[in-house]
Amino acid sequence: MADDREESLEKRRAQLEAELATKRVEAKVDEANEARAEVSRKGYAQAMKLSSEFIAAIIVGAVLGYLLDRFVGTAPWGLIVLLLLGFCAGVLNVLRSAGVVAHPLDDKDDKK
């Protein structure tokens, strides 16, 4: 009877070890999937940030140009010029955020 009990416990231990091994493999797969999802979320967040900065600069330029034309009476030149300046500012903001162009304050901080 002791041998049967010992064999039963040994079978149960082997079965539990096998289940634990499969759970560990599944956990590693889940961790890998989560890591890939995290990279994807970071890329999406960066894309949203860059696009919103670009669009905001264009909208600000257009609104300021419209208001300038409205109050000064230079229609449509204020809108055209400030819209182009907004576009250029948007491109510059995107390049700075992407790390292609250095921020203007970076040079001054290095000299101090």
Rank of each mutant, 00 (worst) to 15 (best):
M1L: 12
A2I: 11
A2E: 14
D3I: 13
D4K: 12
D4L: 14
E6I: 10
E7P: 00
S8W: 07
E10K: 10
K11L: 08
K11T: 07
R12F: 03
R13L: 12
R13Q: 07
A14C: 11
Q15K: 12
L16R: 09
L16K: 06
E17L: 11
E17T: 10
E17Q: 13
A18H: 14
A18C: 05
E19G: 02
L20D: 07
L20H: 08
A21L: 09
T22Y: 12
K23A: 15
K23T: 12
R24N: 06
V25Q: 15
E26H: 08
A27F: 14
K28E: 15
K28I: 07
V29S: 04
D30K: 15
N33D: 10
R36T: 10
A37N: 04
E38D: 14
E38N: 08
E38P: 00
E38F: 05
V39L: 10
S40N: 09
R41I: 01
K42W: 00
K42E: 00
G43L: 02
G43C: 03
G43W: 02
A45G: 06
A47L: 08
K49S: 08
S51I: 14
S52M: 07
E53H: 09
F54P: 00
F54E: 01
F54R: 01
I55Q: 13
I55H: 13
A57H: 05
A57Y: 06
I59N: 09
I59D: 08
I59A: 15
I59M: 11
L64G: 02
L64D: 03
G65Y: 00
G65R: 00
G65F: 01
Y66L: 14
L67W: 03
L67C: 02
L67P: 00
R70T: 09
F71G: 04
V72K: 01
T74Q: 10
P76F: 04
W77Y: 13
L79P: 00
L79V: 13
L79I: 14
V81M: 03
V81I: 15
V81S: 02
L83D: 03
L84N: 08
L85N: 02
L85C: 04
G86E: 02
F87L: 14
F87T: 13
A89P: 05
G90H: 04
N93G: 12
N93M: 14
R96M: 09
R96H: 03
S97A: 05
A98T: 06
G99M: 04
G99T: 03
V100N: 02
V101E: 10
A102H: 08
H103R: 15
P104I: 04
P104D: 05
D107E: 10
D107G: 01
K108N: 07
D109V: 12
